[in-house]
Amino acid sequence: MAAIIFNLFVINKSGGLIFYKDYGTQGRLDTNDSLRLASLWHSMHAISKELSPVNGCNGIEVLEADTFDLHCFQALTGTKIFVATEPGTPGIDSLLKTIYEIYTDYVLKNPFYEVEMPIRCELWDLNLALAVRKDGKAGLVGR
């Protein structure tokens, strides 16, 4: 199963970017752009919740564009993990859940990590790389 991922974002509950990584050569962003995009997505997500015609909407889960798909996973704490992928890539939901699992294990259980702050943990990088192989293909999805 080849799933091409362009970039991965993790944002905290107030919309600040706490982790960003790009894969491959397409769709690379510089630091400013990634920060801007992250907080933009945070606001859009919040607005979509208010605008939704149905009750109990939790915000945008997938955004399908001509050149990319954006999949978003929101944890109960408001932390959001989202990835931009090639259009029509399957299996991203489970990849996002795997990434969230890695986040709870290796970031939240690390005594040297401060909640809501940028993620700098060796084990997170290591395990993330296992889940999303370097070339952006989803690796061991659902270990």
């Binding site: 259980k109 690390n110 005594p111 040297f112 990590y113 084990l123």
Partner: peptide
């Protein structure tokens, strides 16, 4: 198992 010690802590081990 879940601990990453930051580089600045000089070999500290939990």
């Amino acid at each position: 198992r879940f601990v990453s010690v930051p580089g600045g802590m000089g070999g500290f081990n939990c």
